[in-house]
Design a protein around this nucleic acid. Structure first.
Lengths: 156, 156
DNA sequence: GGTATTAGTCAAGCATGGTTGACCATAATG
DNA sequence: CATTATGGTCAACCATGCTTGACTAATACC
């Protein structure tokens, strides 16, 4: 093996951005999910959490939700089914279209079910700030937002 | 809904660290994989890429590889099978133990197969630096390393 | 009002990435 | 040298998170 190859390799050993991102994301997500599970007693799975950021508070139609998620409406429908079963979401008839139903957050223990999840996220981010420093976390947040923009533009 | 709830919600809309990380990781990984596929003409899947960082250049036994990956040796074995089929990895008998085989990078087009993959990663990281600034990328790298350490310590 | 479209559901199936259990050959140990 | 442990493989199976296709009911359009 040539010398430049060895050098490339040593850099790679440290971990590529891509691999690091992936590993961190996976671990952080597992942590958050575990917390959410023990706090709510519900069997929340990763796929469920992808729904929440795409739900409007007033409610969102299944077809629209599926479109936002980038999956078939059947796939979205199944996730919603499970979350409705748990009491996290609810389906209400759409007042302006009798075919449609609006999917929105349900109420658990007197508050929006959503809030339980957000509390978990807030708590984790707080601990993270304690560990790594508020400034570093803010910078990370900012960088990730920019990175996401670049990635979604597809200009890589 | 109460006012503090609304505020929490607004913060959440921007995207939690966890969700941002996950989305960025997924997109970046897909990008890298797509690149690797078109460059190599091989059907590389996400699971394959998780193996590479755990392989020693001298070769690694399957059992050890499985241990590092945190999966059963059967699971690791299947991934290795596929990569051997593609010519990316090769199995050679372990000189010091006739039961064992060493798994190591094969040669494709005259160079270590590994280098093809590393070239893709390097290229992407370069473009990323162009888009977001070298400094920001370096900071991201550093933050991710620290984050990973915290996560692996399990102190969240 | 008839026709095409849209919202949602039911059912079956599939790709990915694992698992567990049984087994064989070689190695290490008393 | 008999026994136990280890490295690897074969086979069957499973959970997750999707997909496609067929269908019903309500709506929109001409």
């Amino acid at each position: 093996m040539s010398q430049p190859e060895r050098a490339t390799l040593e850099r790679a050993k440290r971990g590529s951005i891509s691999q690091l991102l992936f590993k961190c994301a996976r671990l952080l997500n597992e942590t958050a999910l575990a917390r959410a599970r023990e706090r709510s007693g519900l069997d929340v799975r990763p796929a469920h959490t992808t729904i929440f950021p795409h739900l409007d508070l007033e409610g969102t139609r299944l077809t629209e939700l599926a479109r936002r998620l980038g999956v078939s409406k059947q796939a979205a429908g199944q996730l919603v089914d499970e979350l409705v079963e748990m009491g996290v979401l609810e389906r209400v008839p759409d007042p302006v279209d009798a075919r449609a139903k609006l999917i929105r957050f349900g109420r658990r223990r007197g508050g929006l079910a959503l809030m339980e999840g957000l509390a978990v996220l807030g708590e984790i981010e707080g601990k993270l700030a304690d560990e790594l420093g508020r400034q570093r976390i803010d910078a990370l947040h900012e960088t990730l937002l920019r990175l996401l923009a670049v990635l979604e533009r597809g200009s890589l």
